[in-house]
Structure formats: structure tokens, C-alpha cells
């Protein structure tokens, strides 16, 4: 229902907006829903807004869990 893509923050433009990179394309998006965002963070973008910060650290957590279950 809700299209979203990962994007990397290139530059915080002001309190409300940031420039992000989407696979080499640049878009100015609102960061008003994610006030703690920093340059270099990955965010999930929907309709021109960052919806939340993507935590790369846990990206493979589900995989690790399922692999353990498979081998047990």
C-alpha cells in the first residue's frame, strides 16, 4: 500500500529538509518525522518524507535467527 525506498542522507539542508541519494538520484525530502537523523544515515522514504532511520546493524538479524533454527 505504501511505496517506500531506502535512501542515504547526503546533507541536512535545514531543520525540515535533507538531500538524499536514491541509487544515484538526488531528492530533497522532509525530515520532520525523523528529527534525530544525521548525514550518512539511511532512511526509508515515502512520498517525499523520511519515515524512519534504517538500522543496518539488524538487517541480517532475522536471517541469523532463521539459519540457527534451520540447523537445529
Amino acid at each position: 500500500m505504501c511505496l517506500g525506498v531506502p535512501a542515504q542522507i547526503l546533507k541536512i539542508l535545514d531543520e525540515q529538509m535533507a538531500r538524499v541519494d536514491v541509487d544515484g538520484n538526488q531528492v530533497d525530502i522532509s525530515i520532520q518525522l525523523v528529527p534525530d537523523v544525521k548525514t550518512g544515515d539511511y532512511v526509508l522514504v515515502h512520498a517525499g518524507f523520511a519515515m524512519d532511520i534504517i538500522d543496518a546493524g539488524v538487517a541480517d538479524e532475522t536471517m541469523k535467527l532463521l539459519k540457527e533454527l534451520q540447523s537445529s
Binding site: L3, V5, A7, V22, D23, G24, N25, V27, V45
Partner: peptide, 12 residues
């Protein structure tokens, strides 16, 4: 190209 694919994903 990855750039075209990325922009297309963003725009549906």
C-alpha cells in the same frame, strides 16, 4: 542502469 532502477522503485 541502477540509477534508473532506483528512481523507478521510488516512483512505483
Amino acid at each position: 542502469s541502477p540509477v534508473v532502477r532506483g528512481a523507478c522503485d521510488m516512483l512505483g
